[in-house]
Amino acid sequence: MPLEGGIEPLPVAGKLCFASLGSGSKGNATLVSDGETMVLVDCGFGLRDAERRLARFGVHPRQLDAVLVTHEHGDHLRGVGPLARRHAVPVYITPGTWLSGRLGEVPQRHWITPQSRFAVKSLTIDPITVPHDAREPVQFRFESRDCRLGVLTDLGHPTDHVAAAFRGCDALILECNHDRHMLEVGPYPPRLKRRVGGNWGHLANVQAAALLQCLGLDRLQRIVCSHLSEHNNRPELALEALTPLLDGDASRLTIAAQDSGLHWQAIH
Rank of each mutant, 00 (worst) to 15 (best):
C17I: 11
R194K: 15
G5W: 06
V67I: 03
R52Q: 15
G14Q: 00
A134T: 02
L203D: 09
P190T: 07
P131H: 11
E105R: 09
L83V: 14
I223P: 01
Q63I: 11
P11V: 03
D218K: 15
G5E: 05
P61T: 14
V89Q: 00
L64R: 00
L83Y: 02
V206E: 07
L155T: 12
L211H: 00
T129M: 06
T30A: 03
H60I: 11
L3G: 09
N232Y: 14
V196F: 00
R219T: 11
H268Q: 09
G24R: 04
H231D: 15
L64C: 01
C169H: 06
R86P: 09
R52K: 13
G58N: 00
L16H: 01
P82V: 04
V67L: 00
C43Y: 00
R252D: 13
A204Y: 15
F140P: 07
P137D: 08
G44P: 00
H161R: 14
D218I: 07
E175D: 14
F142K: 04
N233D: 04
V120M: 05
A119L: 04
R148P: 00
H231K: 08
A66K: 06
H73K: 13
R194L: 05
L172F: 11
P95F: 07
L239Q: 06
L64M: 00
H71M: 05
Q108N: 14
V151S: 08
G261W: 12
L246G: 00
L83Q: 05
D249R: 06
C169K: 01
Q108T: 07
R145E: 13
L83T: 01
R194V: 12
G35Q: 07
D126F: 15
E72P: 03
S25N: 02
A164S: 15
P90R: 05
V151H: 12
V89C: 01
N28T: 10
A238L: 07
L220M: 10
R222L: 02
G35T: 13
P114G: 03
L10Y: 04
R52N: 12
L10T: 14
H161T: 11
S23C: 02
D49N: 08
